[in-house]
Simulated assay, not measured.
Amino acid sequence: MKHAAGTLAFIARFVVIGLAAAFVISLIWPGVGHRLRARFGLSPADVATSASAPAERIAGPASYADAVKRAAPSVVNIYANKMVTEQAVQMYTDPVLQRLFGGRPAGPAYKRREQSLGSGVIVSSKGYVLTNNHVIANADDIQVLLYDGRVAKAKVVGADVETDLAVLKIDASNLPVIHIADHQPVRTGDVVLAIGNPLGLNQTVTMGIVSAIGRQLSSASPEDFIQTDAAINLGNSGGALVNSEGELVGINTLLIGKAANAEGIGFAIPVSSAKKVLDQIIDTGHVVRGWMGADYTFVPIAADSGLPAAARGAQVTDIYPGGPAAQAGIQPHDILLRIGSDDIADPADLRRHEAALKPGSKVEVSGLRNGSPFHAEVILAQRPPLTPTASLDG
């Protein structure tokens, strides 16, 4: 018994001495343990338990220079010139009259040339350039500055007020065409780069993420927008919003500036919508959308509505006299739940569905009227043009 106890005490002393020596060695040579494990063919995964192993992290690129190099040559600067007529005004000297009337005309009206700055994206080797409609609206002369320093005169092929898009045509060779991202849709949280001509500073790149998708900027429009916190300033309008691979995901169109107490809120037209507009304008010179002749709002949830708690659809608020909906017998307060073979998620979804249909086509609409199911066949008309709205910035 005494012999066994002495043996255990002997082993314990050597264990303590060994641990103390290992501690001292680790302080003097911190990497010796790793080197010994590597010499004997043991990886950190072999000696660490799965419970204590850190979660795998996917590191992003340290630089987006390759993406910029791929996309930047396709982004152009646009200089739109127009003649503006102005009237000289002489202010009243009387403070009361000045406050009431400001001033009175002084001399004949005069004309001056006004230039607006913007950006554009080369989308075809044939010379087609996408930009914003508000950049080139009412312009008498449009000049495009290419990445390599060439200057080309542009003509307007067509424009679409609802998406604020315009298609220009330039006559130039060896044009660098942007790569379009069509392999997967953009997602909230994706890294994006805005490339353009802000404040006349050529080829400026800003970085951010996709803050949201499917944003509706107008209840009357079927279009949705990408929201981003990549810095967009005056002159960025019409420029490219690209992903981390340098592929086009959107056309920058406007921002909500500090005048609205906002920061980091910009918007871009999704490339899928921009491409549809581009194709139609090239083919016909304008964009054609289907229209039912009604306005909609979200479905109200009430205890006596007969609707489930998670009701979807769109409630009709107004019917345009003589329009397709009126002729089909649709009434205000009707709740529309289905168009054709598709369910209706919300008013914006319904507008996108009707806009995608060709004028003259017949579609069945179903829903609830006073809690009872109803069906109607609507022959769509062509959507009338919307009144242009002023952009907030960009």
Rank of each mutant, 00 (worst) to 15 (best):
M1W: 14
M1F: 13
G18D: 12
L19E: 11
F23K: 06
V24L: 02
G33I: 09
R39Y: 15
A48Y: 12
S50Q: 10
S52F: 09
A53F: 11
A55N: 13
R57L: 15
R57V: 15
P61G: 11
S63R: 10
Y64T: 02
D66N: 08
D66E: 13
A67F: 01
V68N: 07
V68D: 05
A71D: 01
V75Q: 11
N81Y: 15
K82I: 03
T85N: 12
Q90V: 14
M91H: 12
T93K: 11
Q98G: 11
F101H: 12
P105C: 02
A109S: 13
S116G: 12
S124Q: 01
L130A: 12
H134V: 02
H134T: 01
H134Q: 05
A137R: 09
I142E: 07
D148N: 13
G149C: 05
R150F: 04
V156F: 05
D164Y: 06
D164F: 04
V167H: 02
V167N: 00
D171I: 07
A181R: 09
D182G: 13
N197Q: 11
N197D: 10
N197G: 12
L199D: 06
Q203C: 09
G214N: 04
G214C: 06
R215M: 06
S218A: 11
A220L: 08
P222C: 09
F225G: 02
D229W: 04
S237I: 01
V242L: 04
S244Q: 08
S244D: 12
E247P: 08
G257K: 00
K258Y: 11
A259L: 07
I265R: 10
I265N: 06
F267M: 02
A268L: 04
I269R: 03
S273F: 05
Q280Y: 07
Q280T: 02
D283R: 14
V288P: 10
R289L: 04
A303V: 11
D318T: 15
G322P: 11
A325P: 02
A326H: 05
L336F: 02
I339V: 13
A345V: 15
D346I: 00
D349N: 14
H353K: 00
V363L: 03
N370P: 10
P373K: 00
V378K: 00
I379K: 15
L392M: 15
